[in-house]
Design a protein around this nucleic acid. Structure first.
Lengths: 154, 154
DNA sequence: CGATTTTTGTTTCCATGGTGAACAATATCC
DNA sequence: GGATATTGTTCACCATGGAAACAAAAATCG
């Protein structure tokens, strides 16, 4: 008894998203997907870098000699997750793990020369990317959006 | 020549995030992670539903008899991605694939009785979740945030 | 000092969510 | 009727993440 159903009520035209448009999470996700795609089109030119990897590089660069555990805390992910990320960045020759002088368990993360120059290139592209995004808003709105996102994230 | 490095410059206290705090994407991601966790703690009670699956259910419920390809377009993912999602929802007994009366290639997606009642439960929890999130902002700010996110997503 | 506990990085296994390519069945278009 | 397009599916991937177990090395505490 494979009763065959009529097709979608709305054949043509746009379809309903139910209660989704009333939810912050829905719009948050859409904005992020849009931003991700824009990032990939622009900054991603440099060795297919992603927002996540760029963020890691930023924190490593801003805190020379950082241990992996500290990086994990800063990024709010598990240590086991950091291992893979560091593996990737090291495989690309952007960073190195150097043994710590004071704790033989720790690895101090450090940018390589290549890492420094590549990061500089990325930063230029990121600023351009950010500027293009910001162009969708007025300067005040961009400021306001940042404030609201921080407030929402607690 | 395993030169041992001194540990991180900033031993104690908070460390630097470099240029990240100046980027919309950074705050967008933080807000989303926070929201995701809250969703998991609240709505996730119902069979570990996720924002993604809930969104799919919403669209299916709001457009009875929807074909998978239409759903893929609405969610902006590939058809092959939809297959797994529909598999999951069907395995949980929330939806069924019914053969279309007019196109024997298509599957019309339809909520089951269980799907309808579970979705009703979820919707209550989602509204409570949304209310708790919104409580972090003033009503005007919530409205404003929605507007800005839509504008950013284009 | 010595024994226990904690921290650090790692490996392994797993789950999720996504893509692209190929494919058979079916519609659609000349 | 024959070429072309669409639909759902499978398969092999990739990326991101977590949990658990583990060895090595600190740190703590008697």
């Amino acid at each position: 008894m494979t009763a065959r159903r009529k097709p979608a009520i709305i054949e043509t035209g746009s379809l309903s998203y139910g209660m989704l448009p009333g939810l912050l999470g829905f719009h948050l996700r859409r904005a992020q997907v849009s931003l991700f795609k824009h990032f990939a089109r622009t900054v991603g030119q440099v060795a297919g870098i992603t927002p996540g990897l760029f963020g890691m590089l930023q924190v490593i660069a801003a805190n020379p000699g950082l241990a992996q555990s500290r990086l994990a805390e800063a990024m709010e992910v598990e240590r086991s997750t950091i291992v893979k990320v560091v593996d990737q960045l090291e495989a690309r020759g952007l960073i190195v793990r150097e043994p710590s002088a004071v704790d033989r368990r720790s690895h101090c993360l450090e940018l390589t020369e290549l890492g420094r120059s590549e990061l500089a290139r990325m930063e230029q592209l990121v600023l351009a990317h950010e500027a293009e995004l910001a162009a969708r808003l007025t300067p005040e709105d961009r400021q306001e959006l940042t404030r609201l996102l921080i407030q929402l994230a607690d």
